[in-house]
Computed example of a mutant assay.
Amino acid sequence: MIRLVFLGPPGAGKGTQAQRIAQEYGIPHISTGDILRNAVKEGTELGKLAKSYMDKGELVPDEVIIGIIRERLSQPDVKEKGFILDGFPRTLPQAEALDELLKELSMPLDRVVYLNVDDEEIVKRLLARGRADDTEEVIRNRLKVYREQTAPLIDYYSEKCILVEIYGVGDIGEITGKIKESVGLEG
Rank of each mutant, 00 (worst) to 15 (best):
R3W: 05
V5I: 15
L7W: 13
G8M: 06
G8N: 07
P9R: 13
P10W: 11
G11W: 06
A12D: 07
K14I: 12
G15N: 11
G15H: 13
A18L: 09
R20W: 07
A22F: 03
A22G: 06
I27N: 14
G33I: 05
D34W: 07
D34V: 11
N38K: 15
G43M: 13
G43D: 13
G43P: 13
E45A: 13
E45Q: 12
L46N: 00
K48R: 15
K48W: 05
L49A: 06
K51N: 01
S52N: 06
S52M: 02
M54T: 04
K56R: 14
K56H: 01
K56T: 03
K56P: 02
G57E: 14
G57T: 14
V60I: 06
I69G: 07
R70V: 08
R70W: 06
E71S: 15
R72V: 15
R72L: 15
S74L: 06
Q75A: 14
Q75N: 11
V78S: 02
F83A: 04
D86Y: 07
D86L: 10
G87Y: 02
F88V: 00
T91P: 09
T91N: 07
E96W: 03
L98R: 00
L101G: 06
L102K: 00
L105A: 10
M107L: 13
P108S: 11
L109K: 00
L109Q: 01
R111I: 07
V112S: 10
L115G: 02
V117Y: 02
V117N: 00
D119T: 08
I122F: 00
I122G: 01
V123E: 04
K124D: 00
K124Y: 01
K124M: 00
R125F: 02
L127R: 09
A128M: 10
G130S: 02
R131H: 03
R131K: 06
D134Q: 14
T135F: 09
E137A: 07
V138P: 03
N141V: 03
R142C: 09
L143T: 12
K144W: 05
R147Y: 15
Q149S: 10
Q149R: 15
L153D: 07
I154N: 02
S158F: 04
K160A: 08
L163P: 09
V164Y: 07
E165G: 00
E165A: 01
Y167G: 03
Y167K: 13
V169T: 13
V169F: 01
G170Y: 02
D171E: 15
E174N: 12
I175Q: 09
I175P: 11
I175A: 12
G177P: 14
K180I: 05
S182L: 08
V183T: 09
G184I: 10
E186V: 15
G187F: 10
